[in-house]
C-alpha cells in the first residue's frame, strides 16, 4: 500500500552564535549549513497496519510525514502510496488520506465545530448520505454529541483533539497520518484517543501512521515501529522483538516479613534493601526471573512480589545511544 524507497532530503539553515557582535557580523555575511533531514529512507507498509514512527526531535519524522502527505518533494527517492506519487498527484492523492497535526488546528476557532465539519464536507465533496454516516459514527464513537455545537476555542484540549481526529476522517480516508495526537492530553483523553484509533483501524481497515513521543501510545497501538534518527532508519519491526533484543535486565521487588540482613543472590544485584523490602536487578540473560523468585520465596516469607521490565523509553534511549543520535 505504501512503498518508500531511498528518500533523501537536505535543507539549508542559517547559523549564528549568540552575542551582539556576532549578530552584526552575520548581518553582513550569514553562514549556512546543510542539514540532512532524510538519508536513504526506505520502508513499506501494508494495508491495515498501525505503524508507530518514532525518533528524537529533529530526526526527520515530520519531513517523512510531509513527503508522504504530498506537501514536500524529496531530493531523491521514490514513494508510491496507493499507486500515487504523493507530490506529483497531490490533489488527486490527498482525497485518500487524513492528516492530524497534533499541535495545529484545522478547525475554525470561532465557529461551532459542526460548521467546520460542514466546510470540510464541501472541501472533500463528500456525498450527503456518506457524510451523515461518517458523522454519526464519529459522533458516537468519539462521544462528540454536545461538543459539536460549541465554538472550537472554548473546547478543552482533549475535546479539541477528538474533534481534530473526527475532522480528518469525515471523508473516509484510507490512510491516516497522526502527528503527535496525544500531546498534552490528560490520561482519560489519551485512552479515548487510543481506543478510537484502534477501533477505526479494525472496523474500517484504515492504515494508521503515527508519530509520538509517548511510548504508551506505541505500546497500546502499534504492532510495528519504525525508528528514525539523524535521517536514517534505525529500527523497523515488531515491538516485542525490539524488547527481546534490548531488554537485558528486569527489576524484582519483594516485600517480606522482617529480615535482619540483606540477602545476596547469584546473577542479581541488590539495588536497595530495608528490613521489609528489597529490590534486585536481574540479568535475565544469565538467570530467569522465576528462578530468582523461587529462591527468594524459599529463603524469605514473601508478602508481595513485583516484576518490572525496563520501560520502553529506556530501550529507545539505548538504541539512540548505540547509533549515537
Amino acid at each position: 500500500m505504501i512503498k518508500v524507497e531511498g528518500l533523501s532530503k537536505t535543507f539549508k539553515v542559517a547559523r549564528r552564535s549568540s552575542g551582539f557582535g556576532e549578530a552584526v557580523r552575520s548581518f553582513f555575511s550569514p553562514k549556512f549549513s546543510e542539514v540532512h533531514a532524510l538519508r536513504d529512507v526506505s520502508f513499506s507498509i501494508d494495508e491495515g497496519e498501525i505503524v508507530g514512527y518514532i525518533g528524537p526531535n529533529g530526526a526527520g519524522k515530520s519531513t517523512t510525514i510531509k513527503v508522504m502527505s504530498g506537501i514536500l518533494v524529496p531530493d531523491k527517492g521514490e514513494c508510491s502510496i496507493m499507486g500515487y506519487v504523493p507530490w506529483r498527484d497531490r490533489v488527486k492523492y490527498v482525497k485518500n488520506i487524513g492528516v492530524v497535526f497534533g499541535q495545529r488546528s484545522q478547525l475554525w476557532a470561532d465557529v461551532p465545530v459542526m460548521d467546520s465539519f460542514e466546510l470540510l464536507r464541501d472541501i472533500y465533496k463528500v456525498q450527503p448520505a456518506n457524510y451523515k454516516k461518517s458523522l454519526d459514527l464519529l459522533t458516537e464513537t468519539l462521544n462528540l454529541g454536545e461538543i459539536l455545537t460549541t465554538p472550537t476555542r472554548q473546547l478543552s484540549l482533549g475535546q479539541r483533539m477528538r474533534c481534530e481526529i473526527a475532522a480528518s476522517l469525515i471523508h473516509d480516508p484510507k490512510i491516516l497520518f497522526l502527528d503527535e495526537p496525544t500531546i498534552g492530553l490528560d490520561a482519560m483523553s489519551k485512552i479515548a484517543v487510543r481506543n478510537f484509533i484502534k477501533m477505526i483501524n479494525k472496523e474500517k481497515k484504515v492504515t494508521v501512521i503515527l508519530t509520538t513521543h509517548d511510548m504508551n501510545d506505541i505500546e497500546t497501538l502499534a504492532n510495528r515501529i519504525i525508528m528514525i534518527g539523524k535521517g536514517q532508519i534505525l529500527y523497523d519491526g515488531n515491538l516485542n522483538n525490539l524488547r527481546e533484543k534490548f531488554v537485558t535486565h528486569k527489576t524484582v521487588t519483594v516485600d517480606y516479613n522482617e529480615n535482619t540482613s540483606p540477602l545476596e543472590l547469584d546473577s542479581a544485584s541488590l539495588l536497595s534493601w530495608s528490613k521489609d523490602r528489597a529490590t534486585y536487578v536481574v540479568d535475565i540473560k544469565k538467570r530467569g526471573v522465576s528462578d530468582i523468585i523461587s529462591e527468594l520465596s524459599a529463603k524469605l516469607e514473601l508478602t508481595d512480589v513485583a516484576v518490572d521490565s525496563e520501560p520502553i523509553e529506556e530501550i529507545i534511549i539505548k538504541l539512540y545511544k548505540e547509533h549515537q543520535v
Binding site: 549568540s18 552575542g19 551582539f20 549578530a23 550569514p30
Partner: peptide
C-alpha cells in the same frame, strides 16, 4: 534593550 536589538539585526533581508 540588547536582546531586542539583536533580534532586530537578525533580519537583514
Amino acid at each position: 534593550f540588547n536582546l531586542r536589538m539583536i533580534n532586530g539585526l537578525q533580519y537583514r533581508i
